[in-house]
Amino acid sequence: TTIHVGDLTLKYDNPKKAYEIAKKLAKKYNLTVTIKNGKITVT
């Protein structure tokens, strides 16, 4: 599972963990989490 945050690309083997991290990042920086085709993007 890949999380895209701006220019950063973070890879995680565990999709659930990746989603949790994405949610935390989104909350911290007041951003939105988008999931599309298995890719998690924080914008």
Rank of each mutant, 00 (worst) to 15 (best):
G6L: 11
A22W: 09
A18E: 00
K36N: 12
T9S: 09
T1Y: 14
K28V: 07
G6D: 04
E20V: 09
K17G: 03
K23H: 11
Y12L: 05
K17C: 09
E20P: 01
K36P: 01
L25K: 01
I40G: 01
P15N: 06
I21M: 13
Y19G: 02
T32V: 13
I35H: 04
T43K: 10
D7F: 14
N14S: 13
V42W: 04
A26H: 02
N37A: 11
T43W: 12
N37Q: 09
K36Q: 13
H4Q: 15
I40P: 00
I21V: 12
A18Q: 01
T9W: 09
D13F: 08
L25C: 03
I21S: 04
T32P: 02
K16M: 11
N30A: 08
A22I: 08
Y19D: 02
N30D: 06
K16P: 03
I40V: 05
L10P: 03
K27H: 08
T32W: 06
T9C: 14
E20D: 09
L25A: 01
N37K: 08
K28R: 11
T1A: 12
T41S: 09
L31M: 11
T1F: 13
V5A: 03
P15K: 07
T43S: 13
T2S: 08
K39P: 02
K39R: 13
T2C: 12
K36D: 12
L8G: 02
V5R: 03
K36W: 08
L8A: 03
D13R: 09
K17N: 05
K36C: 13
I40Y: 05
K39L: 14
T41H: 14
T34H: 11
K11P: 06
L10G: 03
K17P: 01
I3L: 13
N37W: 11
N14M: 05
D13S: 09
N37F: 12
D13M: 08
T32C: 10
I40K: 00
K23W: 13
L31Y: 03
L8R: 07
A22G: 02
D7E: 12
T43G: 13
Y12R: 01
I3V: 13
A26L: 05
A18R: 01
A22Y: 05
V5C: 15
N37Y: 10
Y19F: 12
G38Q: 06
T2R: 05
N37E: 11
L10K: 04
I40M: 05
I35A: 04
T1M: 13
D13W: 12
I3A: 02
K39N: 13
I3N: 02
G6W: 12
V5M: 11
A22C: 07
L10M: 06
T41C: 10
V33E: 00
V33Q: 00
K11E: 12
D13L: 09
D13G: 07
T34E: 09
I35E: 04
A22Q: 01
N37C: 09
K24P: 00
N30F: 07
V5S: 04
T43A: 13
V5D: 02
D13I: 07
N14K: 04
A26P: 00
P15C: 12
V5L: 14
T32D: 04
D7M: 12
N37V: 08
Y12I: 09
I40C: 04
G6E: 04
Y19E: 06
T41Q: 08
K11L: 14
D13C: 15
I35W: 08
K11V: 15
P15V: 12
L8Q: 04
Y12D: 02
V42S: 01
A18V: 04
K24Q: 11
A18Y: 02
P15Y: 15
A22R: 01
K24S: 09
H4K: 12
K39Y: 14
P15E: 10
T9N: 07
L31V: 04
K28A: 07
K23L: 15
H4G: 04
N14T: 12
G38V: 02
V42E: 01
V42N: 01
E20I: 13
H4E: 09
T43E: 11
K23Q: 13
K23I: 14
L8Y: 07
T1N: 08
L10R: 04
A26G: 04
N30V: 03
Y19K: 07
G6Y: 08
I21G: 03
A26N: 01
P15L: 14
Y19C: 05
K23V: 13
T1I: 14
D7R: 15
N37I: 09
K11F: 15
T41I: 15
E20A: 14
V5K: 03
K36S: 13
D7K: 15
I21H: 06
K11I: 15
K27S: 08
N30Q: 08
L25T: 01
K27Q: 10
I3F: 03
P15Q: 10
K27C: 05
N30K: 09
G38Y: 07
L8H: 07
P15D: 07
V5E: 02
N14E: 05
K24L: 14
T1H: 08
L25S: 00
I35D: 02
K17H: 09
K16H: 11
L10C: 12
T34A: 08
Y12G: 03
A26K: 03
T1Q: 06
K28P: 00
G38I: 03
L10N: 03
K27V: 08
V42D: 00
T41M: 14
K27R: 12
L31D: 00
L10E: 03
L25P: 00
N30H: 10
K16I: 12
H4C: 15
K11A: 11
I35R: 06
T9Q: 12
I3Q: 02
T43V: 11
N30W: 05
T34Y: 11
A18S: 02
G38R: 06
D13E: 08
I40F: 05
V33T: 01
L10Y: 06
A26I: 03
K24N: 07
I40E: 01
T9Y: 08
D13K: 10
I21R: 04
E20H: 10
L31P: 00
T32G: 04
E20W: 15
L31R: 01
A22M: 07
T43L: 12
E20R: 13
L25Y: 03
K24I: 13
K23D: 05
T9F: 10
K27I: 10
N30Y: 06
